[in-house]
Design a binder for these strands. Structure first.
Lengths: 215, 215
DNA sequence: GTTACCAATATTGGCGCCAATTTATGATAC
DNA sequence: GTATCATAAATTGGCGCCAATATTGGTAAC
């Protein structure tokens, strides 16, 4: 309420450049291997040189882009081994708190999750890639929150970005997306039934799904 | 070969400023809450303003320092909840690969670990805080490597830094340090005996130890 | 015709200055 | 004597310039 400050003439370029580049990498607009020339980014996001450089430095810290001294930055190409390893880590982390999720689930939180699962389905049909991606994130975030470990929620968000450099290729088939949507609902079902073991199985399957079929 | 370039007159200030600040935070030279004025750091590490700023930005991304706009940066104070949560995450991650550690352990790797455990004990007596800290890191790194997930090794190193902002207070008593040293050897014993369950128990205990006795 | 070398161009990256904001200090009024 | 306000000092943070380095294209020689 009373947001006076966001009425700058330019429009909507108040956001952090790092986030913008991150989104473009995540949505596949900047494919893996692309060289990120500072001048190009400067123009593309209508920002200054230092802003570009800060963004590139941050993203290279997060290992989303690689830095070659005196050559520049390019979008990181995660090899299969890394992708598998990160998947394993996610399975470890997310299944580890399944018991807590079941223990902490209330009718309220289950309803919220059901809503988010439906929202994901909606975005499958009507949303942009980014909206869809974020709907997925929102669902998993809410689910993880039930684990009661805020730090773990943030950590998973972080490492999730670490391999999602090729989300387009991961979600390329509609069949798989719809399967993901159904699995979301099955997870909520398991939560409702207080079946922690089933929930673990579902989570593990859900995460490993994309990487199980490399070609 | 032919490394001519590293013969700069200055001496040994070739290192990255970020690392230097990080070390000083980890070793307790810069206690939690300390305001990190850019001018001070500039003089302290004999570097330029942009270098300082880059270091501060990186460390604030890693949440080791907090950034208050137009006020500056100060060393982050991890509250008890965060510390507990990070501890839990470490237990989850490090015990999750215990089976793999046992499976992958060779006489060679066990010997290496035994050596690192001994080295930690040595540093307890004769090393600096930093050397001691790094000896501990080296042991756990080598142990984790047996898990076969390189990504997990790096991740643990990362989140380990996330709460070690007060390593001094964690390791303040010599009794506790010596207990840690003994536990290292017990872990190697469990590994040698191929007792994964015992190894898990030891790891969990070892990690939770510092935070279990807050006062 | 091909290869090697040199020059021109483009890109990276270091560095310092200046404006904006905040904090500390001192003076004045109550 | 204390509180409040104004002014001054200090600190942050944005921005652009310039040197160092890599790359590309052209030319000449073999």
């Amino acid at each position: 309420m009373s947001e006076v400050q966001s009425e700058t003439a330019a429009g909507s370029e108040e956001r952090d450049v790092t986030e913008l580049v991150l989104q473009d990498i995540l949505t596949g607009l900047l494919p893996a291997g692309t060289w990120l020339k500072q001048i190009d980014l400067e123009r593309r996001y209508d920002c200054t040189r230092p802003e570009v450089r800060r963004a590139l430095d941050r993203l290279s810290q997060k290992r989303l882009v690689a830095h070659v001294p005196n050559r520049g930055y390019h979008v990181h190409q995660p090899d299969d081994r890394h992708a598998k390893e990160v998947g394993d880590i996610r399975v470890i982390l997310e299944t580890a708190v399944a018991d807590m999720m079941v223990a902490n689930a209330t009718p309220d939180s289950i309803a919220t999750l059901r809503g988010l699962a439906r929202y994901f389905d909606e975005m499958t049909l009507t949303g942009t890639i980014l909206e869809h991606y974020e709907a997925n994130l929102a669902f998993h975030r809410e689910l993880l929150l039930l684990g009661g470990n805020q730090e773990l929620v943030d950590l998973v968000s972080e490492i999730r970005q670490r391999t999602s450099s090729a989300p387009v290729s991961q979600w390329r088939t509609r069949a798989r997306i719809e399967k993901s949507g159904r699995e979301h609902h099955m997870m909520v079902d398991a939560l409702e039934a207080r079946d922690a073991e089933q929930l673990k199985r579902l989570i593990a399957l859900h995460i490993r799904q994309p990487t199980d079929t490399p070609k």
